[in-house]
């Protein structure tokens, strides 16, 4: 007889339930299966009403994040065998701290609003004419922000961050790391535009450096590092303006200087 694993999946039907409950499904245990394969098996062969997000199944789209035994994980990149042997139980829940729409599907509009707030795009102050050619960047300039550009918006870091749970207004790890991705880009001049959101009690100063965001990040973005580095920069900038108020940069040229 082939090996089996019991999947305990959080179910929530907005029409029927007042709160989520767990439903157990017996699935075959195959060592090459990831958690997403097991979810697909349940949906295909046992209960077609099971609802969850997934797309690329290769750790790129960032849509299949769930809690596996209490840990935020991409279900496409988490082997069942890491959590269970024959007869074991594996718990699958929606990502923590997000409102639940149905079963494993979380509501992301809050996160997307925060993401938009930090203006995660290149802001050019003086756009040179096309005739000047492309923006050249040295490998060192690329290395400055490359790590932060790996973010796939999977929101695992939000599910790992207790500050997000306790203070829903906190801008959060991924949005701040993405702001840093653009702040540190040599082509960007929007650092001052982002300061109002970042150097704010709900921005970097909301972070208490639990460090879990970095630990769970499947793309090794290190949002905790991005936040602490911005804290140091913001504190230094503040001290500079306090000590030398006459040296305060004009808004129009501050962006390019801060992005250096």
């Amino acid at each position: 007889m082939s090996d089996k694993v019991i999947l305990e999946i959080a179910r929530y039907s907005p029409e029927r339930d007042a709160e989520p409950s767990f439903q157990a499904f017996e699935v075959p245990f195959r060592k090459e299966w990831v958690v997403l394969d097991a979810l697909n098996h349940v949906k295909d062969t046992i209960d077609g009403s099971l609802t969850y997000r997934w797309s690329c199944r290769m750790g790129i789209c960032g849509s299949c994040g769930v809690m596996v035994n209490g840990e935020p994980k991409l279900s496409c990149a988490t082997f069942l065998s890491s959590y269970a042997r024959n007869g074991n139980r594996v718990r699958v829940e929606p990502l923590r701290y997000f409102p639940i729409v149905r079963d494993l599907v979380t509501e992301l509009s809050g996160f997307l609003g925060k993401l938009k707030q930090v203006k995660p795009w290149l802001i050019a102050k003086d756009e040179p004419p096309l005739s000047q050619g492309e923006f050249l960047q040295t490998p060192e300039q690329l290395e400055e922000y490359r790590q932060f550009s790996m973010c796939i918006n999977c929101t695992l870091c939000y599910a790992a961050c207790p500050v997000v749970g306790l203070d829903p207004q906190f801008v959060g790890p991924a949005a701040i790391a993405l702001a840093q991705r653009y702040n540190k880009d040599s082509r960007d001049a929007g650092a001052t535009d982002r300061t109002a959101v970042l150097a704010h009690p709900e921005g970097i100063w909301g972070c208490t450096f639990v460090g879990e965001c970095t630990r769970v990040c499947p793309k090794h973005v290190d949002p905790a590092g991005a936040i602490q580095q911005y804290k140091i920069k913001a504190a230094l900038d503040w001290t500079k303006t306090l000590l030398m108020p006459w040296n305060r940069r004009k808004p129009e040229d501050a962006g390019s200087a801060a992005a250096d």
């Binding site: 409102p99 639940i100 729409v101 749970g165 306790l166």
Partner: peptide
Amino acid sequence: TEYHPRWYRPRV
């Protein structure tokens, strides 16, 4: 956030 009576909001 807008009133969505059908979303389940877990408490910490």
